[in-house]
Amino acid sequence: MKRKMIAMAVSLVAFSGVAGAFDLGKALEDRVKQELEKKTQPAQTTEPAPADSTATKKIDTRQLGMTLLTGYSVEEEVRIGRQVAGNMLGAVPLVRDDKLQNYVNLVGNWVALQSGRSDISWHFGVLDTEDINAFAAPGGYIFVTKGLYRRLNNEAELAGVLAHEIAHVTQKHHLKVLRQSSVIGALGQAASKKAAGSDPVVQNLIGNGAEIMARGLDKNAEYEADRIGMVYAARSGYEPWGLPSVLQDLAGLPAKDSRTGLLYKTHPHPAERLAALGEAVDGRLDAVGGKDAASRFYRLK
């Protein structure tokens, strides 16, 4: 029973970010501090770190909760994301159309502003491949393929696709997978390193190339990103039906289309996603209006 109570308190703090309001809040904070200090200290140091080191001071309570949840600080998250994104771009470059890329960044950043995560800067890119897919790397690096983009009919659909990926980042889905399969603090020793190039410590953590993007997440993580994505898009003033409309379109594609091979390897079939969304949404969004912003939708050349 006691263990259950502690678990409840921990999740409460982690999700609400009001550590100070609970008896266990202080204990939890200390625990996280220990965790962070362990990571910011060089491995060979045996002396305890000063409790008021600047590394622990600048982290706010919400971040404390999230660090406990995934084991990674924001800095580490961004390092992981940069490495995954750099590898992804090694597999496929960006479409050479700056107007397109700027447009997608504007839509993406507008939706990301409604996601509640302002501690990272968000980057969006259209990949030059006819494959139909979209990817999210930790730290706010988000990709949509040209193959998927050309199937979109309006800005609300683009917003819906990007919102699904943004939700993967805010829910830290990939970080949770890494957390489960790796050693806490593996990144700590080089945490302050600011290098533009490939990061061998992070590469060691994420495996080969960008394979983490091909492994896929738990089905429930995808359903969750669909639900949250619809809500983010709606909060951004778009009609909420963009993402479901894209799923409808994909559901109508032939099953063995080689452009959707990787998508279906890493996601439930669109029909299953529509059914799951249908259960969650029912009539709840009936009163939500919103725009599709179709008239300014950027068409591929």
């Binding site: 992804m88 597999a91 491949t129 190339g209 091909a214 091979g261």
Partner: peptide, 13 residues
């Protein structure tokens, strides 16, 4: 389409 091998072999750009 893209496949798993493409991503696995990818080098940081």
């Amino acid at each position: 389409g893209l496949n798993e091998e493409d991503l696995k072999q990818a080098k940081f750009n």
